[in-house]
Each structure stands twice: as structure tokens, then as C-alpha cells.
Amino acid sequence: MTISLIQMALLTMLAAVTVAIIRQRNLFGVVILAGIYSFLMASVMILIDAVDVAMTEASVGAGISTVVLLATIALTGSKEYPSVRRSLVPLFVAAVTGGALIWGTFPLPRFGVQESAIHMHVAPEYLQHSKDHKMPPNVVTAVLGDFRGYDTLGETTVIFTAGIGVMLLLRGRRRRLKENGKSAGKGTA
């Protein structure tokens, strides 16, 4: 009961922070609000038993993402100009999508019921195998590193590719800044 109330309160705060992100025009404020959003989301994740995900979200979502966003703002400036286009069409698209999604949630099983389909498939096998074969007591670790190890391999490949992409995009930055500085007085980029 108490946990349900805490969960509802956290979800309401998440929605409030989201509205604040939409309305905020200062990008520094947006980034800090996004950090708050990530911490709230991590708290919700702890309440729904996803402790590993909560730790990752708090460190990656609220930590690394915030640092990367702040670094970008330092390079590009933090003012968002009011858009000249009308906001009616996006609002309409968002409302229609939201309505369709809510319609789609009606046949979903009830929250927290042990008999729903998701708990009948491979999850019991993972739990049983972890017990039988003396795998790490944290089943998430066992699944991540063993049962679904190829997924993790693919994940590291994606991160490697993204890292190479970032390096290639930013490689010539200092050189370009220097050239601009020579040709046009002070560097403007």
C-alpha cells in the first residue's frame, strides 16, 4: 500500500518534471531537469525490483549523459530561441499517438500478477538454471553474461562503433579552429 503510494507520487513527479522540460527555454535548465528526471526514474525502477537497471540509470542517465550534454552546451551556447513554426500539428500528432497507445493498454494483464504471460516463458528457466548450476546469485548478471552473452557482445560492438563515430566527427576540431583563427582574426566556431 505504502509502496504503491510512493510509486504513484514518483510517477506524478516524473510527469511534472517532463512538463518543466518542455517549457524551459534555457538549455542549462533543461539538462539539469533531465538529470532530475533520471534520478526519479531510477527510484521508480527500484520500486519495481529492477535494482541493476536503477544503478545503471543513475550512473549513466544522470551522470554520463548530463556531463556529455553540459560539454556540448559549453561548445554551442545555452539559449533556445522560440520556434517560429506553429505547435498545433505536433500537439495533434502527440495526442493521436497517446490516444492510440492508451487504447492499446486495455488488454494488457494487470500489474504485478504472477500468472501473466511474461512470467510463463523463459524467465522461470533462467531462475531455475541459475539456482541449479551455481551461477552468480544475481540472476541479471547470469543472464547478461551467460544465457544472453551474444546480446552483450552486440552491445559492446554498438558502443565501439559509436565511440569511433564521435572520434571521427570531432577529430579535426582543434585544427579547424586554428585555421579559422588565422584566416579571420579570432576563431568564431
Binding site: D52, V53, T56, V139, V140, V143, L144
Partner: peptide
């Protein structure tokens, strides 16, 4: 545990 594993992967790919 299965959604937790999938979402762990998704978070890390998301930041990349």
C-alpha cells in the same frame, strides 16, 4: 529478470 537485462543493454546503447 529478462526485461532488466534487455533494458540494461538499452541504457548503455542509448548513451552511446
Amino acid at each position: 529478470p529478462l526485461p532488466h537485462v534487455l533494458i540494461l543493454t538499452a541504457i548503455v546503447v542509448g548513451v552511446a
